[in-house]
Simulated scan of single mutants.
Amino acid sequence: MSPIQVAVLGECVADAFPSGSPELGELALRVLPGGGPANTAVALARLGSPTRFVGRISRDVFGALFHGRFHASGVDVTGCVSAAEPSTLAVATLDGAGQAGYSFHAEGTADWQWTAAELTPDRLGAAACVHTGSLALVRSPGGERIEELLATVRDRMTVSIDPNVRAGLVDPAVYLRRMPRWCALADVVKLSDDDLRHLDSGRSLEEACDAWHAAGVRLAVVTRGAQGAVVSVDGARVRVPAPSIEVVDTVGAGDSFTAGLLHHLGEHGLLGGRLGALDLDRAVEAAAFAARVAALTCSVPGADPPWARELAAAEPVRAPARVAR
């Protein structure tokens, strides 16, 4: 494998999709490998970015499922810990628009149990960028240790964070309290509009982006589903439209967007520092590419991001429109 471009640090989650008739006393679960960071690592590798996943993977049957997916997608797992604790399980339900909601079974599971001896910079290798977020960044004791690691490596790696708020499991106040610290560590912050409602309900999108920039973030992106995404570089903003597609479900769409964004930045030599060469036009190009990756993920069931060859055959997104300040 080529030198690692992106190291993704976080959790694997077994996503269970129920079927059957509970009223008849029967329910079946179809389990697919998931978890925001794991999905992002898989999407990056399928796009062609040399990617390492760093996580604590259980030795249970779900752990074997995760390893199989990583291997098939070309993800380097040499930075992972083989863990005795069980895997995290999320039971998903889909509404009429394909939007997923989750109930989590996460107490005492492998993903959050990082020790100081386990989580050292060498697990990331010589990556140009480290991406993290989701539950791994807020569940103790691992979340605090991940923050400490980011502070250690940010002098040589671009830091990307996706909070991916899970309000059903973690009080949004925890994310809100830690957000200033994350912005001080991160060069890239990507959130969904749902995340924004939890974290900055009293501020407009523009005000929230400006606050993140003031804390140290160079590139902020807020995804808005079918309305596309807003890209903000040092306070200059552009709206990037979403491709028109038939949505099967939205599982993993945000993770695929993050992967597309980082892949495009890496392909253009922008990762590996504080994004000093990034300007608004380049950020918009990266977000437009990311929107196409996310759209293809929404066109198939589950978190099944596209391969580069599939993306090459897809229709390009139309030109972005400027957002008035």
Rank of each mutant, 00 (worst) to 15 (best):
A321G: 11
H131G: 06
E23I: 11
L278Y: 01
E285H: 11
S58F: 09
S244C: 11
V159S: 00
G266A: 05
E206Q: 08
L27K: 15
A106C: 03
N39L: 10
E118Q: 15
E147P: 02
V231P: 00
E207F: 06
V61P: 04
V130D: 10
L119S: 15
R59W: 06
L47T: 07
E285F: 01
G228T: 09
R69H: 07
V91A: 06
D279N: 13
P305C: 04
R56C: 08
E207M: 05
P305R: 05
H105E: 05
C12F: 14
F257K: 04
L32P: 00
F62G: 02
E267M: 11
A117Q: 15
A287I: 00
A214F: 03
L29H: 11
G36R: 02
V6G: 05
R318S: 14
V165R: 10
D193V: 03
A97Q: 08
D255Q: 07
G133N: 06
V217W: 01
G260D: 12
V54A: 06
T88S: 09
S19V: 05
G35K: 07
F104I: 01
S2F: 02
R322D: 14
T152F: 02
W212I: 10
G68D: 14
D304M: 13
G79Q: 11
G48D: 10
E118F: 06
A303P: 12
A127T: 02
A41V: 03
K190I: 01
V13Y: 12
A84L: 08
P320W: 13
A43Y: 04
E26K: 15
D249L: 14
S160E: 04
A186M: 10
G63R: 12
D304C: 08
L89W: 05
Y102R: 07
G225M: 12
G228S: 05
T51G: 07
G36K: 03
A64G: 06
P18S: 12
G235L: 03
P243G: 12
R322P: 10
S2T: 02
V165M: 06
H264F: 11
V174N: 06
A324Y: 13
A90L: 14
L311V: 02
G68C: 04
P50L: 09
R197P: 01
P22N: 14
A229C: 15
V130H: 12
G254H: 04
G235P: 00
V42W: 07
V153N: 03
L262I: 08
R59C: 12
E85W: 02
V238E: 15
I4C: 03
R154E: 03
A41G: 07
D193W: 05
T109S: 10
D76I: 01
A126I: 01
S134T: 03
V293C: 03
G68N: 08
F257E: 04
A215M: 08
